[in-house]
Nucleic acid binder design. Structure first.
Lengths: 282, 282
DNA sequence: TGCAGAATGAAATTAAATTTCGTAATATGA
DNA sequence: TCATATTACGAAATTTAATTTCATTCTGCA
């Protein structure tokens, strides 16, 4: 049995101008179409709504709705890896953007699997297991990951520190020892603040874990342990919205691994914290 | 990831009479439902059309249409039968966990599409367009999203504020006016700190946008605009690692929409900021 | 050149989804 | 116990989407 998309593809030559335009759009973005209305699809493919209906009939579907359902079924089974698309188009509505972002973020997380080195990950987990203090540092977009990590590891009972303030960090690092871990977060691996603090921490004897894009950046080279995130595409104008997702996925992994390790010991404390929270009704 | 049908099944006891009737019918004939209209389904299950809509919202879907699409996907996949998995198993290596987390986070982002209401999203974007000050507030795991949002909107040139400190926020809110927007972030929608500040902000006349799970929580009810995230499963011991991903996806959407709106005006400023950063070699 | 016939989109119509609103039932609390 | 919320629900109104109708344009051919 032929898939609906390939059926459209093979019917393309027989279709009229307007219908072919529709078909081409559908082939391009089959995953997006089931969520659309005739109006949207007509705008996207540059034809009238009436033509959409005619198109559906042409390829043997009773109605636009039936067609959408059939297409969704098709796409679900196909499990196609959709390739790229440009994030910004002038006519995009917020809802369009929303779906694009879902797609982009999903793919970003998916590609995490490619860039991660399993040995480095194991080393990172070992280092964390033995760590006394954990220091996270990232600036700009990477501060999100630092804040998140700090919160999570505090929940696990770690002495876990982060700050956005370079000078605060500067005053903190002299107190680090070989038992401590400094997690440097920088997508590019070139951020000067992050590099300087990493070097300083390393000089103090702390283990430096770099959470950075997979490339041979200074941070990558200088770190003791490298947790690499994929080189997700980024729009030069807006920066990457997705690199943060990849960083957080790695943080989640570290968190879950540590939870796994010390897990049962802290469960009771989680309960206590939650119960206390409830009694304070917060 | 639980299937939608089994999710409905387990939610059944919590639903009201009419909604339970609907749920029971869906469990009985899940394959038939995607092709039905609200009218048909209401007749089959012996309730009103309005209840159908309410049912969809109750189980975490933005609309009847998205529900049908999700159900179809579910039914389609049921044949190919992907089994779910529990996140924690004793033998899991960090690398195993990593892959599981990739999977879980991906699914969480994917299911964002189901819970988002397109009208509410449009309303949120409109509100942001006209806003003077933006205030973000979230505690615990939700603070990540607040921090991220604050950073992003500052980059866009907004007067954008967040803090983890309840008392700081308390002193800030009296200065809000009708022109300002307060974005309340709480997965459960019940966090007392968030609720109290939202109410206060609303009393001051600010527009309150809730970024919360789709459920009928106090925050959901009281907000002017509701941006709903899906009810991702969470381990009672570790809390949800994924709800943050869904929140960030919504933040990304708002950010991109605003960028889209005021976009070209700020591009030059982005360049300036980057050039300055480079000249400072940071 | 002018006519038949196909292709197309704008506007009208029909159908479906969603919201609003009033009522009844049930919980809450003084 | 009685007043007061709160909740659940369906009927009707409204909004939104799908489909049909119909006028216009284009194309090929006598």
């Amino acid at each position: 049995m032929k898939s609906l998309v390939s059926k459209i593809e093979s019917n393309l030559p027989q279709l009229s101008e307007a219908e072919r335009r529709i078909g081409e759009y559908i082939i391009e973005r089959p995953d997006a179409v089931p969520h659309m209305t005739t109006k949207e699809l007509s705008e996207k493919s540059g034809v009238s709504e009436a033509s959409i209906i005619r198109f559906c009939k042409s390829i043997g579907m009773g109605s636009f709705k039936t067609f959408k359902l059939a297409l969704l079924k098709d796409v679900t089974l196909m499990d196609t890896n959709l390739t790229d698309f440009s994030v910004l188009q002038q006519k995009d509505s917020p809802y369009d953007l929303f779906h694009k972002i879902i797609h982009v973020n999903k793919s970003a997380i998916e590609s995490c699997a490619d860039s991660m080195d399993r040995k480095e990950l194991a080393k990172a987990v070992e280092a964390l297991k033995e760590a006394e203090k954990l220091v996270f540092f990232g600036v700009g977009g990477s501060s999100t990951a630092a804040v998140d990590a700090q919160y999570k590891f505090t929940k696990l009972g770690y002495h876990s520190i982060t700050s956005l303030d370079f000078h605060y960090m500067l005053s903190l690092i002299p107190h680090l020892t070989e038992k401590d871990v400094f997690v440097a977060i920088s997508t590019s691996g070139k951020t000067k603040d992050v590099l300087e603090l990493s070097r300083f921490a390393k000089k103090r004897g702390a283990k430096v874990i770099a959470l950075t894009n997979i490339n041979k950046s200074p941070l990558y080279k200088e770190a003791d342990i490298r947790l690499c995130t994929p080189n997700v595409e980024q729009d030069f104008r807006i920066g990457s919205i997705s690199s943060r997702m990849t960083q957080l996925t790695v943080i989640d992994t570290l968190y879950m691994s540590m939870f796994h390790h010390i897990g049962e010991k802290v469960v009771q404390k989680y309960y206590d914290a939650r119960k206390e929270m409830e009694s304070l009704r917060r």
